[in-house]
């Protein structure tokens, strides 16, 4: 059900771990729904993401999207990192099954949440960044009624 890229990132996740005294940390999702992502950013004085790490509790797609998202933001400046959308993550993974699209949204949210934390700590504003939602599944559609 997963593409080769997804399986590769699941089996060999890039940038797993923690960063001590990170410039920004963001945690999104909730255990109730079965996925939580945490992103650590190390951002230098030129606002470049020098290092990034993640930890994820979740399915194969959740792990793969976190891993891909970290790859996509690493080395970018914070404004470029804002352009890493869930679509970009999905495309880089050659797609996700429809029921797993929310995992890529979660990855985007996690990056944004870490950037928000960085912005708050440093008293700056990042264009287009809003306060992270506490629950990724907020506003999601209920399943179709059967029968």
């Amino acid at each position: 059900m997963y593409t080769e890229k997804v399986m590769d990132h699941f089996q060999h996740p890039r940038n797993v771990g923690e960063i001590e005294n990170a410039s920004g940390v963001g945690t999104v999702g909730n255990a109730k729904c079965g996925d939580i992502m945490r992103i650590y950013l190390d951002i230098d004085e030129n606002q470049i993401i020098r290092d990034v790490k993640f930890k994820t509790f979740g399915c194969g797609a959740a792990v793969a999207t976190s891993s891909m998202a970290t790859e996509l933001v690493k080395g970018k400046n914070i404004h470029e990192a804002m352009q890493v959308t869930n679509k970009a993550v999905m495309e880089a993974l050659d797609g996700l099954p429809p029921v797993k699209v929310h995992c890529s949204l979660l990855a985007e949210e996690a990056i944004h949440a870490a950037l928000w934390d960085y912005a708050e700590k440093n008293g700056i504003k990042i264009e287009g960044l809003t306060k992270p939602k506490s629950d990724i599944h907020e506003g999601e559609e209920e399943e179709d009624e059967e029968y």
Binding site: M7, F10, Q11, C33, G34, D35, F57, G58, C59, G60, A62, V63
Partner: peptide
């Protein structure tokens, strides 16, 4: 602290077929 689907995929890579009650 872990999620069932990831566990199943990893077991599958070792040639083990099992199932889980996770949402995924």
């Amino acid at each position: 602290f872990i999620e069932g689907e990831s566990l199943l995929i990893m077991l599958d890579m070792k040639g083990i077929c099992a199932s889980s009650g996770s949402a995924c």
